[in-house]
Amino acid sequence: MLDVGPGTAVRVRGMQPPGHIRTPHYLRGKAGVIERCLGLSGNPEQLAYGLPGASLPLYRVRFTMADIWGARAERPDDTLDAEIYGHWLEETV
């Protein structure tokens, strides 16, 4: 499980699991930077089915529009922040 601080470079895992997922498709596989840590939060992928949700670190990750959309970006250095759970992130170098 990822346990990192603000400024850490990360990548959203490109997984395609079924079920109730709070990681938007358009961010899967994309690289960003931790904007801030939001503490621990119950895993919605379990809570959605009435299961006890494991406590996971929740992060706000900042992506540039170029990171997400490549050459299609309207303005490459505009940004998008999203909340992503730790098990969806891997640290990049």
Binding site: R22, T23, P24, S41, L58, D78, L80, E83, Y85
Partner: peptide, 8 residues
């Protein structure tokens, strides 16, 4: 800066 409220 666009903010997508994806979680809590």
């Amino acid at each position: 800066r666009v903010h997508d409220s994806t979680a809590d």
